[in-house]
Nucleic acid binder design. Structure first.
Lengths: 250, 250
DNA sequence: TCCTCGAACATTTCTATAAGATATAAGACA
DNA sequence: TGTCTTATATCTTATAGAAATGTTCGAGGA
């Protein structure tokens, strides 16, 4: 315990502006390391003891920080094994962020086909929701998603170009959040979605192969990175004849 | 600390079948007391110290149990004040379970008008979702909900009659979950909802004063009591022209 | 006498730390 | 090959001090 105790010093600095407890500073420091890519996705963190010695705090404080991170689905803890960076693989995405479930209760992750991929200056709505500057540029993806070869969702995605340089040159995979984390160091930590029932437009109906004017579920999603920066805006039109959006509250 | 330590004994009993940590036993015991109505809604619990002495465990163990309950929105903790039973008042319901938000971002809790109130034998669908016996009876409520005197939701509610004896003789208030807790000792702890976009039926359209066939958001909610018993089934049809359903995930 | 303000105190939750218990995996050994 | 030991990880419980909040009580002025 004769280490530097960098956090206590920081706490004193922050004391004037607003005190933050030690375990929370530890949590923020660890999150920063994750963001910086110090540890790869799915790999184990150093043990509580090692982190405690390295940061100059007690094991219990590290433990409290890790518990908080586990509650945020950032890490996974297993007794006797270790603490692991949560992976953004398909299965996790499916349960955490993909809420469309078949009426039979089965979840199927849809396949995707890119309809259009472009980039340009952000329009007013995109600037507003992504909180980017007036002359900033965005990448736009329009794609069709199918379950069992039946088109179910057509979605328009807008990304700040500054955060995803070179994305347009890559092949767009089915699970976008995976490459956000892998290639661009952006881990999606939370989303909020606005749902509405609308009558389908001509263009969306044509893409989905159904008649215009039919009822559809419109989902406007904004995805935030771990640091709370808007990273993706997604506008989805979903057919809910054989699927529903599942929302569990407690 | 010379108390009875009833929990350790129980732990030993449960050891053969499946061990549960001490703080979790404390949590379950406290939840049982809440369910049994030992403490009224909104009132303070005994202090950590007092509970610890009473239950024969350390303060830290009580603390961990209370923390878990706070994470479940069961109690509210305030430093220097105490720990309080979470209240099922309008404000709390609005934020925890009512997810319909105006497009301007403002939340308005709707007023309600009962259209029909009846009781009878549960049909197959009601038995299925509420998990009640073949000859069990249900109470049915159909009501219209308005925001700023504009009809927005028409909903059909089904309740197991066994859980809510005498409800039909009472006046149905705007906030149902309040009287579930107050008069029948049933606290809603969690809900799960299935959302779909549908074309409105004749009857629902007439109730809402709009044209049949328009798109509407259909919400099928099942509400569970703290013990996980299905307590209410609610089928809502919502107009989402000026409102949206807000879903926040992390 | 009545009212206001403030300091001291009691009570409560929050934070930090430490030690023993439990779970897991890998290597030693018969 | 199978079992036991050992090392290492998280999990559980315990304890002490810090911070926040409410109350009591007395001094001082109108």
């Amino acid at each position: 315990m004769s280490e530097s105790r960098e956090f206590v010093a920081r706490a004193d600095d922050a004391d004037a502006l607003g005190f933050r407890p030690l375990y929370r500073q530890v949590r923020d420091a660890l999150i920063r390391r994750i963001v910086d890519g110090v540890w790869a996705s799915g790999q184990p963190l150093p043990s509580e003891m090692r982190l405690a010695a390295e940061l100059g705090v007690s094991q219990g404080t590290v433990r409290k920080a890790l518990d908080a991170m586990a509650a945020e689905n950032l890490v996974v803890r297993r007794q006797g094994r270790g603490t692991f960076i949560a992976r953004h693989d398909e299965e996790r995405i499916m349960f955490q962020f993909f809420k469309l479930v078949g009426d039979d209760g089965l979840r199927s992750f849809p396949q995707s086909r890119v309809l259009a991929l472009s980039q340009g200056k952000a329009n007013a709505a995109e600037r507003e929701v992504l909180k980017i500057a007036k002359d900033a540029r965005v990448i736009r993806i329009r794609r069709l998603r199918s379950i069992d070869d039946t088109p179910v969702i057509v979605e328009n995605i807008a990304l700040p170009e500054a955060l995803f340089p070179g994305l347009t040159g890559m092949e767009v995979p089915n699970n976008l959040y995976g490459i956000y984390a892998m290639h661009f160091g952006i881990t999606i930590g939370s989303t909020h979605e606005k749902l509405k029932a609308i009558a389908m437009s001509e263009a969306d109906a044509r893409a989905l192969g159904v008649a215009a004017g039919l009822p559809a579920l419109q989902i406007d999603r904004l995805a935030l990175s771990l640091e709370g920066v808007p990273a993706e805006s997604r506008h989805s039109i979903c057919l809910t004849d054989h699927f529903h959006y599942l929302s569990e509250l407690r």
